[in-house]
Design a protein around this nucleic acid. Sequence first.
DNA 1: GATATTTATGTAATCCGTTACGTAAAATAG
DNA 2: CTATTTTACGTAACGGATTACATAAATATC
Lengths: 330, 330
Amino acid sequence: MITIKDVAKEAGVSVATISRVLNNSPGVSDETRERVLSVIKRLNYNPNLLGRNLRRMETKMVLVLLPTISNPFYARIVKGIEDVAQKNGYGVMLCNTDSNVEREKMYLELLKNRLSDGVIFMAPEMDKDELNEIGEKYAVVQCCEYKEGANVSHVSIDNYKASYKAVKHLIGLGHKHIGLISCKNNFLSTKHREEGYKSALEDSGIPFNPDYIRYGDYSFKSGFRAAQGLLNDHKEITAIFAISDIMAIGAIKSCCENGLKVPDDIGIVGFDNISFAPMYNPSLTTVSQPKYDIGCTAMELLIKQIENKGGNKENIVLEHELIIRHSTVK
Amino acid sequence: MITIKDVAKEAGVSVATISRVLNNSPGVSDETRERVLSVIKRLNYNPNLLGRNLRRMETKMVLVLLPTISNPFYARIVKGIEDVAQKNGYGVMLCNTDSNVEREKMYLELLKNRLSDGVIFMAPEMDKDELNEIGEKYAVVQCCEYKEGANVSHVSIDNYKASYKAVKHLIGLGHKHIGLISCKNNFLSTKHREEGYKSALEDSGIPFNPDYIRYGDYSFKSGFRAAQGLLNDHKEITAIFAISDIMAIGAIKSCCENGLKVPDDIGIVGFDNISFAPMYNPSLTTVSQPKYDIGCTAMELLIKQIENKGGNKENIVLEHELIIRHSTVK
DNA sequence: GATATTTATGTAATCCGTTACGTAAAATAG
DNA sequence: CTATTTTACGTAACGGATTACATAAATATC
């Protein structure tokens, strides 16, 4: 393997000069710089960053922990993260945690072992206190999902308001019996979306019926089953709000298989505006998060933390939007 | 920051002993080992892997380059890769190339700079010769998509046979006028899938009509438009085979919007069996690749190359399966 | 009990770039 | 023309962990 020494010898200068050329540091004559660059090219030299990283104690790499890349919701967010990272000379490592604390902790070793300069959590699994501990020693940002009370920056939308707006849309269409497909977890977004649902009903003078809530696990199948259960037990239901698009799609499929027409017989609203939402048949009314911007903002926050060596806790709330499609109106 | 020296001083031994404990090397008394471990825990010491990596000239990290994580096709493959990686002590970095040669090359710097021990390409963008050059110096595996004639290992299915089978299925249902939605690119999979389509027709005595082929770009919209064009120009068409599920889904949507019933009026077959295929309305008949196994196999091949320091070129072909759903039969 | 072997540990070189510091030569100032 | 500053380098320490080699102590062998 070619090292900086080989290049130095070949160019007839010291390794320090090579390093200066590599880093565009001042103090090298144009002539020498040219010569060194040509030797580098001729020998096809690639600096071994392990040496640099050790010396500088940084890797210019950040970790992005997400539950699973198979959830299309994350794709645009990741794009935003990557674009900002690239612009600032950082690389991005995506890691699937499978919503598994063990796996999450395994990947966090990369942070502790200095193989990564910071981490973005899409949905932290560990508890608030552990998260806080990590946040004190390393650069950390939470993205979309976050832990209440954790003293760690986050970027997200106002899930309460978004959910409120979605349910108000259904009410505005004349629906009075609206089911909710939620999840049993302790994500804050879930709690806020449920609260938004309740408030929207109550503010419209519609009594809240706890049996109108069914729980899934963000999967298609769980949405399918939840809708089936709801419509079976409560014939009067004419609309369903699901806290994720994939469950909403499961709900639509379930309606269609039971001979119900969407949106004529049942109106359905999802959440997230995944890329499949407009493709579905019928296309899905849903709440859109500014995914790309969320990603960009999270990465910007992270870089600020890395470069200022910690400090700056910031929480940023971005705007959502209700996108009306054919699962609620013809 | 706590280093190995701090631990050594605190435990009253040399750094070599600490290192031996960290690596489970022999030659440390139980008593000393215990003591060192307790000091490590007490000081909350995390070894800095930058030092280890530099010394060992390895990072136990591999690169996976994919066009985009938003294509759900890759999710299961990545899972296979990750599971095998984890079992063997490797970490996985996923990187989006956006099907962009520049971005692909940028990420390959991680290999050249020794920040990664090997790379898996899901769909190499660079040309055969460049790929070969990389393959000579580093551990490289191609997964699903591969370059013809490149002397670099690959894992894939037999796209020709798979496509042949899919079209034969349509012919078996009585269809005689079958459109094809393909892509204009130079992927080998595309070429083979087109060839399979032609052979299936010819072997069944159905003349091949070049105007029955339309081209998309793997997107929903392009599938939608292609189907619209085909059905507009050729009222006699009763079936469409698309070389990707997402385009097939676009085709279904297009049919439905034009008042055609799937599968009664038009039968549609896709390719890849993405997670959305069974969720769609109607569910999609498609060719299933053993995605998880493909991922596992690719990673196994890569590890073999890394640990044997190159050598072993191997090409592995795995079995596919035709999955019949409601887009072709009631 | 002397010798050979094994065990447990330490010392120091090493991996590759970076960078603080030193120095000689060139440029500038007076 | 001398004194000062600037420029263009070189030398060597450094970052943290690994590991070949050395060594002292403990154990086994006869």
